[in-house]
Amino acid sequence: MTTAGPPGVGASAAGRAARGLLILLALAVALGPFAVLFLNSLRPADDFLRPGAGLVPDAITFAHYAEVFGPGSDTLRFLANSLIITTATTVMAVSLGALAAYALARLRLPFRLSLVIGLAFLVVRFYPKITVALPYYLIMRDLGWLDTHAAVILAHVSITVPFVVWLLLGFFEELPREIELSAMLDGCGPVRRFVQIVLPLSAPALGAAAVLTAFLSWNEFLMASSVASDAAKTLPVRVSSFITDKGTAWGPMSAMGTVIVLPVMLFALVTQRWLARGLTAGAVKG
């Protein structure tokens, strides 16, 4: 008779194989689209519409990258826009969000107002963004801010701040209050308490919030495309303009898509340990 151990401990060969298969399947689902994108970016232009073309291109070319980054192309300008907007959004959203979350976590508001405000922040994330895209366009037009970095940054900050608040609210609530009381008795005012005690202790959570905010801003398409037509255009918006009424430029589009996705993947790989720690912080006391 075999004893039924906990799953994963001393599992049979068949069980291990099944588990391996499941992981491979998950990997395929996660990485498959990127693999197709990457392979297409290397595919010669005439191979795209050839009947019977396989998933893997017959020949490899770097012509699309040359075209995307070549002389006379605007790609570097759009890359710079993306970097500026992502950086500014991350700094502003995390700073604002951290302050708001800390205040909500520490103020003793009556009628459970902290919870209500916290939930309101969450609700902001539920409705379709398209409902605000048009009014936002009109506001920016009237302000004369169309096609400026500020317009895109403001949109991105407003999208990401609620997310940052929600993430950090839980973290700050878990942060032992007595440590701050102790700092208070040690003579620290509110600012010093926040800077010297709370911030260093929240570094993992702030890091996680920053990384996720950066991803959101870097990838965001709808708001950026509605207010940025050229000078403040970001890479995701640029990608969409490869689809024209004269046809779709598959090769250059795939090349630029790879350029957008690659840094995100590398960044995620580098920060993943940190990210996991920040997202689960508070669940396990350190």
């Binding site: 007595e178 440590i179 102790s182 208070m184 008795l185």
Partner: peptide
Amino acid sequence: AAMEREIAMVFQSYALYPHMTVARNLGFA
């Protein structure tokens, strides 16, 4: 204010600063 009462408090949970060494914890105030 608490910080001007010239009192020192020891908390049940100790409330040490996790990101500071013992020496810095002792000397922080």
